[in-house]
Amino acid sequence: MNMPFYVAPEQVMKDRADYARKGIARGRSLIAFRYDAGIAICAENTSSTLRKVSEIYDRIAFAGVGKYNEFDQLRIAGVRHADMKGYSFSREDVDARSLANQYAQSLGQIFTHEMKPMEVEILVAEIGHVEDGSADQLFHILYDGTVMDEDMSVVLGGETDTISERFGDLDVPPSLGEGVRLAASALAGPDRQLGADALEVAVLERGSSRRTFRRLSDEETTEVLTA
């Protein structure tokens, strides 16, 4: 009988984490931030069909970076979870915190038990019912199931430290235009510029309609960037 070589659990976990991080760092990053009328998510994405940011429920949005097929699978699972919960209870019982916990459970399980961890980092954002935005939530979930509750803004993907530094700390939520311009230049860095065709921008917008998620068209994004 063959005995497998002993590998320290610390080493196994470290190897898996390195593997996942490398996969995530290969992709392009995104920034989510609170603005004066809700939450905006701004991703660097040259594709106009393969989305990184999407709608989960009336007040909840999803964003993912890393391997597309993996975060898209999580996105669909989130839509299903939310729609089933809303169907069996009520629409107001669907919340981001419980969804973020479910994601964390699944990612944690996959990280420790499956052949390979998921090479993704995801964001679950929800706008609350309070007008000043104090009940808005940003949950940042890592490949190993770590959940972080962010306050004003969060960067997902590779080079997060550099990008966060460029984006800076917000004291008060900016206007949408101001925020998107800041996010675009933070994602681009000093050596290049990102236009509307390289950006995917979507918002959860406080207002009268039930579904608050809205994508900005390329024209709208250009308008915002050049204002």
Binding site: A77, G78, H81, M84, K85, S88, Q102, Q105
Partner: peptide
Amino acid sequence: MNLPLFRP
């Protein structure tokens, strides 16, 4: 209610 993940 858990996360509904399905095999392809």
